[in-house]
Computed example of a mutant assay.
Amino acid sequence: MDCQEAVNEVIAVIHNPSSVGKLLDSVRVALGFGLRNIVITKATGSAAQQGVPEAFKLAIKSGATLMVLPDLRDAVELLRPVATYLLSTRGEPLDSVSGRSLLVMNASDQPFTPSELNLGRQVRVVGRDVGGTALLTLALYKLMGKCIE
């Protein structure tokens, strides 16, 4: 996948955020890699009340599209990706993507639920628990690093 296709076809999904800081850091990472589409699903607490409006501001300033949806299932149904990758420390290694792909970062301290795991493929970004934002950063660097250097 070339760089232009990657920024248009790779969609970062920030799932289940409750922290404003974690939500905004994740949005900044996605925008920093040049992604044009970001989705927030299942936002709760201060992330929903304060973080989402701030995330919209960041997206608008960058010319990106930000969608906020009730659940991960909604993102999969509405966006109809070729593949949905649940970023993790388990599963097959994440090597490449093609076509419209969702990269789902779990912004919660809880693991993906079994019903969420059924929506896509769990992929290993790195073998250690480094947190959701770091997993998103490493995954995007692995897939798009040549596009930002």
Score class of each variant (00 low, 15 high):
residue 39 V to P: 04
residue 83 A to F: 09
residue 127 G to V: 05
residue 33 F to P: 00
residue 74 D to Y: 08
residue 2 D to R: 14
residue 82 V to W: 15
residue 38 I to H: 03
residue 78 L to V: 13
residue 72 L to F: 02
residue 130 V to Q: 08
residue 126 V to I: 15
residue 114 P to G: 14
residue 70 P to V: 07
residue 132 G to V: 00
residue 22 K to F: 06
residue 82 V to Q: 10
residue 80 R to I: 10
residue 32 G to C: 08
residue 131 G to T: 03
residue 121 R to D: 07
residue 15 H to T: 02
residue 63 G to C: 07
residue 135 L to E: 08
residue 12 A to R: 00
residue 38 I to G: 04
residue 49 Q to C: 11
residue 100 R to Y: 14
residue 111 P to Q: 08
residue 92 E to K: 11
residue 95 D to V: 11
residue 29 V to T: 05
residue 42 K to A: 12
residue 36 R to K: 12
residue 82 V to I: 14
residue 148 I to A: 15
residue 31 L to R: 01
residue 69 L to A: 04
residue 49 Q to M: 15
residue 89 T to S: 15
residue 53 P to D: 09
residue 22 K to C: 05
residue 1 M to T: 15
residue 4 Q to W: 15
residue 43 A to E: 00
residue 69 L to M: 13
residue 134 A to C: 09
residue 1 M to I: 11
residue 33 F to V: 11
residue 105 M to S: 03
residue 98 S to T: 09
residue 64 A to M: 15
residue 62 S to Y: 06
residue 121 R to P: 03
residue 146 K to T: 13
residue 102 L to E: 02
residue 122 Q to L: 07
residue 86 L to A: 00
residue 9 E to Q: 14
residue 8 N to M: 13
residue 77 E to Y: 06
residue 68 V to G: 01
residue 1 M to G: 10
residue 41 T to V: 09
residue 128 R to G: 07
residue 147 C to A: 15
residue 85 Y to L: 14
residue 11 I to E: 00
residue 28 R to C: 06
residue 83 A to Q: 07
residue 24 L to M: 11
residue 144 M to L: 08
residue 32 G to D: 09
residue 114 P to S: 12
residue 149 E to R: 15
residue 32 G to A: 10
residue 142 K to G: 11
residue 21 G to N: 11
residue 9 E to T: 10
residue 66 L to V: 07
residue 98 S to H: 13
residue 92 E to Q: 10
residue 25 D to K: 03
residue 2 D to L: 15
residue 48 A to T: 06
residue 48 A to E: 05
residue 95 D to E: 15
residue 107 A to L: 01
residue 33 F to D: 00
residue 128 R to D: 15
residue 75 A to P: 01
residue 146 K to I: 13
residue 51 G to C: 04
residue 114 P to C: 09
residue 113 T to N: 12
residue 66 L to T: 03
residue 92 E to H: 11
residue 90 R to P: 03
residue 19 S to H: 11
residue 113 T to G: 08
residue 67 M to K: 07
residue 17 P to I: 01
residue 13 V to G: 02
residue 62 S to F: 06
residue 54 E to Y: 11
residue 71 D to H: 04
residue 34 G to Q: 05
residue 148 I to Y: 12
residue 112 F to P: 00
residue 137 T to Q: 05
residue 45 G to L: 09
residue 45 G to A: 09
residue 106 N to E: 12
residue 70 P to S: 05
residue 93 P to C: 11
residue 46 S to C: 14
residue 18 S to M: 13
residue 115 S to K: 15
residue 125 V to M: 05
residue 15 H to K: 09
residue 144 M to P: 00
residue 105 M to R: 07
residue 50 Q to F: 09
residue 52 V to D: 00
residue 114 P to E: 10
residue 95 D to T: 13
residue 80 R to G: 10
residue 57 K to S: 10
